[in-house]
Design a protein around this nucleic acid. Structure first.
Lengths: 132, 132
DNA sequence: AGTATTTATTTAGCTAGGTAAATAATTTAG
DNA sequence: CTAAATTATTTACCTAGCTAAATAAATACT
């Protein structure tokens, strides 16, 4: 396997695992946090808006939202267009998200901390220059 | 989410999906190919050698090997140490792997082709410089 | 207005990773 | 030499992505 791909996949797995480790204290998984963060940033969103924004498929979002709803982090309500479901953060989520965001920011800072700001920018540029 | 992480996860997903697409013509999934490639490169390996080398957990390898065995790509034989199972490529795998490797190399070359050799090296260096 | 097409969501089922715990064989300690 | 600890693999079950197909509502066509 091309060493670039190998390293990229390894790093991706390592980072999600580490993120999950950090999120354990908040009883969350990384993909759940991704959705909560998205809702916090954009306000109420339909499922379609969420999966298009996160660039994952609809069924993955349906499942994640169902779980988050069971756990009390979000609510699903019918939209004016009765086909769509609008997802909103619960009061519990609004209350807890600041602390969670703080731990995430600390984690992210630590992870990329070994790179200078310039190197981080360089890395992003190269990543985006790759095909896809 | 930190844009570096976001971009890295997106790219990782995009690449595995693309790889799966390319491997469809050989009736393989990317993780299966990873193991076949590993065996081709190193010869017979025990399960433990495989999961340590690929840096994934043992149960993931057990499952993948079972599937590959069902499909006739590998055999599992008892080692001298009766606890361990040695995995070897089947004749079918030996016969087909060169063609598969060729399509993979073409795919990889296309994917990183938008970067110069120097940029590729730079990218790898930055990736490895990141924590983990 | 009534039918056909599109769109939003869900369901079912697949690969692919993870942890925790069970089992079986080997090695180590007393 | 036997009991305890370690090691290799497997099993069970979780998240997390995917595709294909089902369902229900809205829109477009004639």
């Amino acid at each position: 396997m091309n060493p670039i791909f190998h390293a990229l996949f390894q790093k991706s797995r390592f980072l999600t695992n580490s993120l999950n480790e950090v999120l354990k204290q908040h009883n969350l998984y990384s993909s759940q946090w991704t959705i909560l963060y998205c809702l916090q940033k954009h306000g109420a969103m339909s499922l379609t808006q969420i999966w298009k924004y996160l660039n994952i498929e609809a069924p993955s979002v349906t499942r994640a939202i169902s779980r988050l709803e069971d756990l009390g982090w979000v609510q699903r309500v019918d939209g004016d267009d009765k086909r769509e479901k609008i997802v909103t953060l619960s009061a519990m989520a609004e209350q807890r998200l600041p602390a969670i965001t703080a731990t995430i920011l600390a984690f992210e800072a630590e992870m990329v901390g070994s790179l200078t700001a310039e190197e981080q920018q360089q890395f992003l540029t190269l990543l985006q220059k790759m095909k896809g």
